[in-house]
Structure formats: C-alpha cells, structure tokens
Simulated assay, not measured.
Amino acid sequence: MAGRRRWSTEEILDAAAELLTTSGAESFSVRKLAAALGTDSSSLYRHFRSKTELLRAVADRILLAAMEGHRPEGDWQQRITALALRLREAFGRQPQLAAVWGRYASGGTGSRLVMEEVLQALRASGLADEEIPGHYHRLAVLIAALIASEAGVTTVTAEEHEQGLELFRVAVLGAAPERFPALAHFARDVRPLGADRRAAFEDILAAHLAQLARIAAAAGPPR
C-alpha cells in the first residue's frame, strides 16, 4: 500500500494560509490543517513545533513578499511611510492574516527585513541611538494596529457592512441631546470607522512621524 504523501514546508504554509482566509486565526488548528491536507497532525509537527510557530511562519511569508524588490528611497520619513504602505497592501490582499501578524508577530527573514529597514530609517532621523529601540517599538505597534484594524473592516460581508451602517446611524442620529450633547452636535458630520481608511492610515502615521521629527530636532545633532 502506498504511503501517505510527504508535504513540504512551503506546501504546508500554502495550505495554512488558504485555511486561515476562511476560518481565521481563532478557529484555526493544526488538526484542521492536517485534515485539509489528508494527513495527521504528527506529520506537520515535524515541520513546526506548535500552532504558534506555524502561524508566525505564515505571517512572515506576507512580510517577505512585501519586502521583495523593495528599494529604500527618499528621506527617513518617506522610507517608513513607503514601507508601511507596502505592508498595508500586502495584508490587504490577505486581510485575515493581518490579525495573525498582530497577535503572533514573526521572527523570520521577512520580519528581520522589515525591522532592518525601520531601524535604518530611524537612525537617519537624527534620533539618539539609545532612543531608537523605544521609538521603533511604538512605531511597529502603531503600524500593526492600523493594518489589523483596516483588515478587520475589509473582511466583513456586504450584509454585515449594511447592518453596521444602520446601527451607526441609529446610535448617532438617535442620540438624545440632553445626555449626549457633543454627539448630537456633531451627529451629521461624524463618520463610521470604515470610512476613509486609507486617508486615516496615512494621516495617523504622518502625525506620528512628524512628532518623531520634532523630538529629533529638539535633541540637536548627535554628539
């Protein structure tokens, strides 16, 4: 009797990414992945020691794809902005995996390429070396949060989107002025979370980078 097929690491990651697009990280399991491949969980554990390690590898492939062919251009703010938009676009094609990256992070080549580019850009900003790790961490959290937040909106169905808009209209336009005076005042101008996501992404990132530029300028040239 022929033995079971041996799946390569890349084939396992392909299948895991496909499964994640339909089930999400919360319901994903190595057992489900093994069933999809027609094998048993033990064969997958020869490639990955745990579900978390597997999910990190899936997320890292998104980062690696985003960095393929990337050439840094412009000043440090332009470099970070361009990188953030590349990551946003990469996870936009597979939005279900954005939450995986935000939750499990990654330690592979893709992650190292992203970290290297951000750290190099921050060194070019004029910030003192001892301050850069802390600013890097906050910037990484911000970018990951913005990408995950946008991905969460793009994965809802058309029906869920319409229901959400209706609930938003009821919550805002139906707010009692005596209890929610500010909300009632701005009711016709406040927009739901899903509106103008791209502009919000770029504005928030630009504001953060501008703050870093002010910090670097206040510190003066490196000694």
Rank of each mutant, 00 (worst) to 15 (best):
G3T: 10
G3Q: 05
S8V: 11
S8I: 11
T9L: 13
T9D: 10
E10S: 04
E10A: 10
E10Y: 06
L13R: 03
D14P: 00
A15G: 02
A15F: 02
E18N: 00
L19A: 02
L20V: 05
L20C: 04
T22C: 04
S23K: 05
G24N: 07
G24W: 09
A25C: 04
A25M: 13
E26T: 09
E26C: 08
E26D: 13
S27E: 08
F28S: 01
V30W: 07
R31L: 12
R31K: 13
K32G: 02
L33Y: 10
A35N: 05
A36V: 10
A36Y: 12
L37C: 10
S41T: 14
S42G: 09
S43P: 13
L44E: 02
R46P: 03
R46K: 14
H47D: 12
R49C: 09
S50T: 14
S50P: 11
E53F: 13
E53Q: 14
L54K: 04
L54N: 04
I62S: 00
L64Y: 13
A66E: 02
M67V: 00
M67S: 03
G69L: 12
G69K: 14
P72F: 03
G74K: 05
D75V: 15
W76M: 04
Q77N: 12
Q77L: 09
Q78V: 08
R79T: 04
T81R: 04
A82W: 02
A82K: 08
L83N: 02
A84N: 03
L87D: 04
A90I: 06
F91N: 06
F91Q: 04
Q94N: 11
V100F: 09
A105M: 06
S106F: 07
G107L: 05
G107M: 06
G108S: 12
T109A: 14
E116K: 15
V118I: 12
V118W: 03
V118S: 01
V118N: 03
V118L: 09
Q120M: 14
R123Y: 13
G126L: 08
G126E: 01
L127W: 01
D129V: 14
E130Y: 09
E131F: 03
Y136K: 10
R138H: 08
L139Q: 03
L142R: 05
A145E: 08
I147H: 03
A148W: 07
S149R: 11
S149V: 06
E150A: 10
A151D: 02
A151C: 11
G152E: 00
G152K: 00
V153H: 00
E160I: 07
E160M: 11
H161A: 07
Q163M: 08
Q163N: 07
G164C: 09
E166V: 02
V170I: 13
G174K: 08
A176N: 10
A176P: 00
A176G: 01
P177K: 01
R179V: 14
F180K: 05
F180W: 15
P181M: 14
A182T: 12
A182K: 14
H185C: 02
F186A: 04
R188N: 12
D189L: 15
V190I: 15
A195E: 06
D196W: 15
A199H: 00
A199F: 04
L205A: 06
A207S: 15
H208Q: 03
A210R: 13
A210E: 12
A210P: 06
L212Y: 01
A213F: 11
A216R: 04
G220L: 15
P222M: 10
